[in-house]
């Protein structure tokens, strides 16, 4: 029995631990707090380890861990009523197409500004952006992680991108902003 447990532990470490950085990255940008993110990551790996027998070898372990992370995160919010405020998604509607001429001064899209714009997105939108544009999950994988229809992923991603572009454009328009180069 012990030998089987050792084998199980080794298999888990080989498959799951390489995904730790991705889970941490996702958790940190989801929770916006390093301590909460660290707790979340530990809880995710503990749950994954306990239910590792249910993991199907050959499937995407990273997507499996991210789905656990999202589930734990949602449950944390249910317990903690101090969770992020619910944002009316309608408020994220893009501006009329007449005004879509972006100011593409990308040289001022610093990483910090992108992070700031990302963090200001409402949770439902930010989660999809994180999964698809940073973790590079397909729409289908993201839908499975979130337990939502494919169309929801598509529409939230659309809104997220438009909101990010709007936010970055607004930042560029801020008076007195330093013209930093994007790659320093």
């Amino acid at each position: 029995m012990e030998a089987r447990e050792d084998k199980r532990r080794s298999a888990f470490e080989a498959v799951a631990l390489p995904c730790a950085a991705a889970v941490h990255r996702f958790s940190l940008r989801l929770t916006r707090d390093p301590h909460t993110a660290a707790d979340l990551v530990q809880e995710v790996f503990l749950r994954a380890y306990r239910s590792f027998d249910a993991f199907r070898t050959g499937t995407d372990c990273r997507a499996w861990l991210l789905s656990i992370a999202y589930s734990v995160f949602i449950n944390m919010h249910r317990k903690d009523r101090r969770g992020p405020p619910i944002v009316d998604l309608a408020s994220l509607e893009s501006e009329p197409p007449d005004s879509i001429e972006w100011d593409l001064r990308r040289d001022v899209w610093t990483r910090a500004r992108i992070e700031r714009a990302l963090f200001e997105l409402p949770e439902e939108i930010r989660t999809v952006v994180l999964l698809v544009l940073i973790e590079e999950l397909t729409y289908e994988e993201a839908a499975r992680v979130l337990g939502c229809p494919l169309g929801t992923v598509r529409s939230r991603l659309f809104r997220g991108r438009r909101a990010l572009l709007n936010a970055l454009r607004d930042q560029v328009a801020e008076p007195g902003m330093l013209a930093l180069t994007r790659k320093q």
Partner: peptide
Amino acid sequence: SELEGLRALDAGLQELEQ
């Protein structure tokens, strides 16, 4: 311009630090 914005945004998100 919209398309270029999308490309720049995706690239910027990919370049965020670990």
